[in-house]
Design a protein around this nucleic acid. Structure first.
Lengths: 127, 127
DNA sequence: GCAACCTTGACACGATCGTGTTAAGCTTTG
DNA sequence: CAAAGCTTAACACGATCGTGTCAAGGTTGC
């Protein structure tokens, strides 16, 4: 019998049951369900929930911020748009002249894209 | 005489002067100032401001979301904490078994850190 | 079969966001 | 120097966030 019910999970994580549902609705957790729809919190979700508390406190940020950061991390279009915006014509970082600016951006972009592919395994990425 | 005053900038960007100040207070733009403190919007900021409008509309997100995304992008601690949280014990991505999971995370972490250093120039990054 | 627990949905309410507006005080300009 | 424009600070207000609470109904356990 793996997994806690919502009230038990609330107990051990410090979140209220109400908040657990809310956090789920925000897309930040996705507890399993019994056939009849009861939520089941496994050790993974529990840990995630505790960590989430720390996160919010440590960086003094909102739940909605984390929710958006998740979109930012997982939606490549959004990520590209934002990453591009942040870099759009600030005062150029020293050491980079305008001639090289474009290529720097391009390279960064490629590096970002390349990164999102998990390693193809059975053979350590190191050749 | 490079640069528009706040009302002119408001005119050409579609934001109200009030919002331009607000956006600045959110850390999303940083217009230059005259010696007496008047804001000056150069072509860069103007473009940024227009793009920002698009961004918000296209991805239906809030100003505060973009502000947080900026923190997320530029504060390595925050970035590490979030990136780690998103990956904490989801259902493991296919192709990565638990044995390699850790190393994948570590590697990703290094790649992320490595990326934030702009290229040292006068010599294309290629050796 | 009833008590205890879960689910979704809704109302409530303070806090923050996004925005406008107004006030009081400099600065620039004709 | 007066009009027009900028600056910061503050009040106001609807919308959304974060949270509690309550209601109506299904499920589980003894």
């Amino acid at each position: 019998m793996e997994g806690l019910t919502i009230n038990e999970a609330a107990e051990t994580t410090g979140w209220s049951p109400r908040m657990l549902r809310y956090i789920e609705s925000a897309g930040l957790i996705e507890p399993l369900r019994t056939p009849k729809g009861y939520r089941i919190f496994g050790p993974g979700e529990l840990q995630r929930l505790r960590t989430l508390r720390e996160l919010l406190a440590r960086f003094d940020c909102a739940l909605s911020d984390v929710a958006f950061a998740k979109r930012h991390t997982s939606d490549p279009e959004l990520r590209a748009a934002l990453d591009h915006w942040f870099v759009e014509r600030p005062r150029l970082p020293e050491g980079v002249d305008s001639g090289n600016w474009l290529s720097w951006e391009q390279q960064k972009h490629q590096r970002l894209l390349a990164m999102d592919t998990p390693p193809r395994l059975t053979e350590t990425t190191a050749a």
